[in-house]
Design a protein around this nucleic acid. Structure first.
Length: 505
RNA sequence: GGUCCGCUAGCUCAAUUGGCAGAGCAACUGACUCUUAAUCAGUAGGUUCUCGGUUCGAGUCCGAGGCGGAUCACCA
C-alpha cells in the first residue's frame, strides 16, 4: 500500500489541486467551521424528495412546495451565478438539484466559496420545481459534512482508465453509473438466490477455507502455512466435501455461498478467487438438480431484472431466454454432432488424440483422456450453447465424485449447465459407494503421478471415512455466481462483476 | 507463457514526415439571483510510464523493463 501522502512523488499539478483544497480547509477552520462534523441526520433522500414533490403538486397544483426536508450527499456539480447557485447533490438513491440564494442563506452563503466538487454536504429546505421544471431543494440551511482534499474524475467524461477503475473502484462507482448498477445487481442476485434456496428448505452453512487437503475439484491450490502448528495449509478449491459430510451427519439440505480460490491465470472469464454456491440435497438426483437450477436462475433473473430474457452474449447476438425448461443434451451425442468424435469409440488417449489432431484441436502433451475430452467439449460444444442447455451424462474418467449411471458402462449421472457459450454450473448424483469412491480417488492420484498433473483431485481420507459411515442418495450442485452475474448483467468480463478483481501489483 | 495494441495536465483526449507539447472539463482571479456539460473575461497547471540508445533535435524511431487491454495457449 502507498504511504499516506507521498508528496515527494506527487506530480506538481496534482499537488496544487490538493493544496487549493487544503487551503480552503484551513479557511473553514479559521471561521470556526468543522469540516468533518461527527453527526448529521438526513430525513430524506433525493428519490424521496422527488416523490414528495410529485405528491404535493398533485395535491396543491403547480408551484407547490413541500415541508422542509433534510438531505445529505456528495456535491457533483456547481453552477454559480453570483448571488445564487445550483448544486447537483448525489446520494445513494440518485441526484437532486439544490438551489441556493444569498438572500435566503445570509452568511451561510459564503460557505460556497470553500466548497469543492466531491465534498459531502447537508441541505435543509422544501422541495420545489424550478421554472425549467427541475425538482430542486430551496436550501435554507447548508452544512459541510466532509471536505474532500482530492479532485474527482471529470464530471462529464467519467473515468475510463480501466486500471484506475479497478484499483480505485470507489472512483468508478462515483464517476460511472453503470459500475454502481452492476454492483447492486450482483447484490440483488445473491439476495434472490438466498431467498430461493431458503424457500426450498436449504440450510446455509459455512465450512473451512483453510484446509489440509485441497480436494473436491481439479485445480491447483494456493498454499499457506500455520505457524503454531508448523503445518502447511491450503485455501479451499471447492466446498464440496465438507458439505457432503454434513449430509452424512443427517442434514438433508445444505448449501454454502462462499469464496473459493484457484491458483490459476486470470482473464476475462477467470479470477483467482471467485464465488460459488454449492448445494446438496438428500434423496434428490441429478434430474431434480437440473429442475432446481433452471427454476433458480430464471427466478433470480425475474426478481432482479423483471424479465427471464438475459442480454445477448455478444454484440448483435440473440437475447438469452432463461425460461424453463432448458434443453437436455446427451453429452456423447452432442460431441458427435459438433465434432464428429465419439468418445465411446475413442476410448484411449491414442485414438482420442488422433481424432483431435485430424480436427486441428490442440492436444496438450501428457494430458490424460478426460482432460483431452474436456478440450474437445470446450472447443466444439461449449461455444454453441448460447441458449441455456444442460449437457448430460459424462464419462466416469472426468468425474471422480459422481455416481455411475445404472445400465450405462463408463457413464456417470453428471450434468453441466451452459448459457451464452459459458459453463454456469456442474452437478451430479453424488457418488456414495465408499469402495468405488476410494478407487476413483486412487485413480486420480495415479493420474496425478503418471501425467505429472497437479490439478487432479486429491484423496481426502476424512471424506472417505465419512462416506463409509453412509451418505444417503444425494444430488449436488456447484454454480458460479460471478458467471451468473455476468449472464444477468450482460457483462462480458468477470472483472466488471467483481468489485475488486485481481490485478498485478 | 506467445503475439498484438495502449500508457501525454487531476479527468477525457489531441499533437502532420523526427522540428516550439495542446484542447475541453476540473483548479485559480473576476462578472453574473432559475441554472442544469450554465455563461462571459482572464490566469496557472507537463518526469509525455521508467531506464538506456540513435539523432543537431525524440511524445514520435530502436532496445530493455513496468502496468493495462485484446487474442492464442493453459486453467473444465
Amino acid at each position: 500500500m502507498p504511504g499516506p501522502e507521498e508528496s515527494t512523488d506527487q506530480p506538481v499539478s496534482e499537488a496544487r489541486l490538493i493544496q487549493a483544497r487544503l487551503d480552503k480547509l484551513e479557511r473553514l477552520r479559521a471561521r470556526g467551521i468543522d469540516p468533518y462534523p461527527a453527526r448529521f441526520k438526513p430525513t430524506s433522500d433525493s428519490a424521496s424528495a422527488r416523490a414528495e414533490l410529485d405528491s404535493v403538486e398533485s395535491e396543491l397544483g403547480e408551484g407547490a412546495k413541500s415541508e422542509s426536508l433534510v438531505l445529505a450527499g456528495r456535491m457533483m456539480a456547481r453552477r454559480g451565478m453570483g448571488k445564487a447557485a445550483f448544486i447537483d447533490l448525489r446520494d445513494a438513491s440518485g441526484t437532486i438539484q439544490l438551489h441556493l440564494r444569498q438572500d435566503v442563506l445570509g452568511d451561510e452563503y459564503e460557505l460556497l466559496d470553500d466548497l469543492d466538487l466531491g465534498d459531502f454536504i447537508g441541505a435543509e429546505g422544501p422541495v420545489f420545481r424550478t421554472r425549467r421544471g427541475e425538482p430542486s431543494i430551496e436550501v435554507r440551511s447548508l452544512t459541510l459534512l466532509t471536505k474532500a482534499t482530492r479532485p474527482l474524475p471529470d464530471k462529464w467524461s467519467g473515468l475510463r482508465d480501466t486500471e484506475k477503475r479497478f484499483r480505485q473502484r470507489y472512483l468508478d462507482l462515483i464517476a460511472n453509473e453503470r459500475a454502481m448498477e452492476i454492483a447492486r445487481m450482483r447484490a440483488d442476485i445473491v439476495a434472490s438466490m438466498r431467498r430461493f434456496m431458503h424457500g426450498r428448505g436449504f440450510m446455509e452453512v459455512e465450512t473451512p477455507m483453510l484446509v489440509t487437503v485441497p480436494a473436491g475439484a481439479s485445480a491447483r491450490p494456493f498454499g499457506t502455512h500455520h505457524n503454531a502448528l508448523d503445518r502447511d495449509l491450503y485455501l479451499r478449491i471447492a466446498t464440496e466435501l465438507h458439505l457432503k459430510k454434513l449430509i452424512v451427519g443427517g442434514f438433508d439440505r445444505v448449501c454454502e455461498i462462499g469464496r473459493i480460490f484457484r491458483n490459476e491465470g486470470f482473464d476475462q472469464d477467470h479470477n483467482p478467487e471467485f464465488t460459488t454456491i454449492e448445494s446438496y440435497e438428500a434423496y434428490a438426483d441429478y434430474n431434480d438438480v437440473m429442475e432446481m437450477v433452471e427454476q433458480m436462475v430464471s427466478t433470480i433473473a425475474m426478481e432482479v431484472t423483471g424479465s427471464m430474457i438475459a442480454p445477448p452474449d455478444e454484440v448483435g447476438g440473440q437475447p438469452i431466454d432463461l425460461t424453463p425448461p432448458w434443453s437436455r443434451l446427451d453429452l456423447r451425442e452432442e460431441i458427435k454432432k459438433r465434432s464428429g468424435i465419439d468418445f465411446v469409440e475413442c476410448d484411449d488417449i491414442e485414438s482420442l488424440s488422433a481424432a483431435m489432431r485430424e480436427r486441428d484441436i490442440h492436444v496438450e502433451p501428457g494430458a490424460n483422456w478426460g482432460r483431452l475430452l474436456d478440450k474437445v467439449i470446450s472447443d466444439h460444444v461449449e461455444p454453441n450453447l448460447i441458449q441455456p442447455a444442460f449437457l448430460v451424462d459424462y464419462p466416469v474418467e472426468m468425474s471422480p465424485l459422481a455416481k455411475r449411471k445404472p445400465g450405462s458402462d463408463g457413464i456417470v449421472e453428471r450434468f453441466e449447465g451452459f448459457v451464452g457459450g459459458h459453463e454456469l454450473c456442474n452437478a451430479f448424483t453424488e457418488l456414495n459407494d465408499p469402495v468405488d469412491q476410494r478407487a476413483r480417488f486412487e485413480d486420480q492420484e495415479r493420474l496425478r503421478r503418471e501425467h505429472d498433473d497437479d490439478e487432479m483431485d486429491r484423496l481426502d481420507e476424512d471424506f472417505l471415512i465419512a462416506v463409509e459411515h453412509g451418505m444417503p442418495p444425494t444430488g449436488g450442485l456447484g454454480l458460479g455466481i460471478d458467471r451468473l452475474a455476468m449472464l444477468i448483467s450482460g457483462e462480458r468480463s468477470i472483472r466488471e462483476v467483481i468489485l475488486y478483481p485481481q490485478l498485478r501489483d
